[in-house]
Write a protein that binds this DNA or RNA. Structure first.
Lengths: 332, 332
DNA sequence: CTGAAAGCGCTTACAG
DNA sequence: CTGAAAGCGCTTACAG
């Protein structure tokens, strides 16, 4: 598996490696004669030359690699983001490294270190609780980073997110107008700011109405079981209730509970779920959900990162996108 | 963003870069005095040294990078595989590059080239129709590769797959014993060998029984629409029918059709679907499905690749795993 | 129009 | 026990 190098081309074509390099990079400035150019190109094709980007990276201190860290690449939400990031990155000449940290700050730190050692030009990060140290280290090194989906309370970084607070507020308002006796907010027991935003937005709107809001908060490791247990404890079918699931995983867990217990939507209970997933379409009732503009967000994150890479600026633009409430039939 | 190098450590510690390198790589053979060792380690920590793996890669001709090419990382099936591959790769010291080719051989070729230029140590590939040229080129260069999920008709490569033919045959046999009037096989109009195996296994078993098998084959770009249309044309509810969906995407499209048209399972029609996905759990009936041992497959693929990397062998072991038929309530 | 040379940050025989 | 030196495959001023 010995690969041809420009040295080989140079030797066979009877020119210097410098000339080969110039030709292969088709630099305009330095005029190389048509003849030697053609010869070099011919030889290069003959011996099946492929450039060694690692050598180039070392010389240029640019790897054209970017790293993406998400909670879990097998989660629909993140794999969709990853796909859009991949496409955009590709378009801009970057190759994508992907890592999952499972909400674990140690893994997160390991991944940033790994990526940094691999000399990625920048990273797109979905920070987790406790990842501040790892991120601060990157910031100190002036490493280009962009956050996605989530953001940090104490560190001002360029990032891409949605209007979590407002969309929750708005949906809650919508529900209040339908005169529910009870609203149930299903969320995570977490300190992640963007999730708290969802919760607070909902709360704030509900507060001034006087309607009871029950809150179900689960850990991240036994979502299905915890959601089932807590819905069983808290869902009172004698009241006119609407459940708000604040993530796709929670939504899926909740819908599964309803299916398993033969609870009809929206006859027995109404619901709204966050994020879009194919799964919602197999539920007997068309689920009303909140759609994030993932593609645009992904695209923007790569653009922000690229501009960071090309000229580092400490303080970042945060791009806030608007989520869309897609109303279907699960709220009555 | 100027990073410290071993040169910096050497200068500050007053030793040579060779010594630094030895210490940092804790080579047993070369005994370095405790004192200089400690000093080097101390300095290294102080100036926040992180190794430049690109330089190391260049010197060692090993990048500790592996590339994964799948059809689409946003597809549940592949994102689950990717996740397991990531975990195993990580464990073995590799970092993962991921690319999606959308069943497009040109994109596939571009990705292999890109990965090869980035000097990945090896690739895990889910080949697509028309990717033989790209793969042959890699084989000629003796590039370590392993196929996953899919395999190639004309090239014998190490790879990981399931017993597609047999599992289909077995399920068909199971269905025949339930005395259906009609079986519908839903698949792709494709030349991918592993999918044809699924089809042929089903056919072979059905043939000798005399039961009618209708075949619905769709393209890969409008799965939902095509499945809907064809089910509408072919599903005869007056007969006792069972539908066999040969992939998760087809299954989801089909289940959605049934939901949309209020066709009850298994009262009006029975079904079996390939692959597991959260979505199946939101369907009103518990869907019987075929489960692939993705984790084991992913793990094995990384192991096969690693052993390729460490000692290249042309002809490959193919590891065939057994899929499992998980029977629930969708077949009557 | 073309080449010799330095250097990116490492590793590793080899010599002492 | 430690260091000088070569070299991995590139790029790029600089000189001619």
């Amino acid at each position: 598996m010995k690969r041809a190098s420009i040295k080989d081309i140079a030797r066979i074509a009877g020119v210097s490696v410098a000339t080969v390099s110039y030709v292969l990079n088709k630099k305009e400035g330095s005029r190389i004669s048509e003849a030697t150019r053609d010869k070099i190109l011919k030889v290069s094709k003959e011996i099946n030359y492929t450039p060694n980007k690692i050598a180039k990276s070392l010389k240029m201190s640019k790897s054209k690699l970017i790293g993406l860290i998400v909670a879990d690449i097998s989660n629909d939400f993140y794999s969709n983001i990853a796909r859009s990031i991949e496409d955009e990155a590709m378009k801009m000449g970057y190759t994508l490294l992907i890592g999952s940290c499972d909400e674990n700050p140690e893994k997160f730190g390991k991944l940033t270190e790994l990526f940094s050692e691999q000399q990625v030009d920048g990273m797109i990060l979905a920070p987790v609780t406790g990842s501040d140290d790892a991120i601060n280290r990157l910031v100190r090194e002036e490493y280009p980073i962009v956050t996605i989906d989530r953001y940090l309370q104490n560190i001002d970084l360029p990032g891409v997110m949605i209007n979590n607070f407002e969309i929750s507020e708005q949906i809650c308002g919508h529900l209040l107008r339908k005169n529910f006796d009870e609203l149930i907010y299903v969320g995570y027991d977490t300190e992640l700011p963007h999730l708290l935003d969802r919760q607070y937005g909902f709360d704030k709107c509900a507060e001034k109405s006087g309607v009871t809001v029950k809150r179900i908060l689960t850990g991240i490791h036994n979502i299905t079981e915890e959601v089932h247990q807590q819905l069983q404890d808290n869902l009172d079918l004698s009241k006119k209730t609407c459940i708000y699931f604040s993530s796709n995983k929670l939504g899926i867990a909740g819908l599964r509970y309803l299916i398993d217990n033969n609870i009809k939507v929206p006859e027995n209970v109404s619901l709204v779920a966050f994020d879009e997933t194919e799964a919602y379409y197999l539920f007997p009732t068309e689920v009303s959900f909140v759609r994030q503009p993932l593609e645009e967000m992904a695209r923007e994150s790569v653009k922000l990162l690229d501009s960071q890479i090309n000229s580092y600026t400490q303080q970042g633009k945060r791009a806030t996108f608007h989520a869309e409430f897609v109303e279907r039939n699960s709220v009555e």
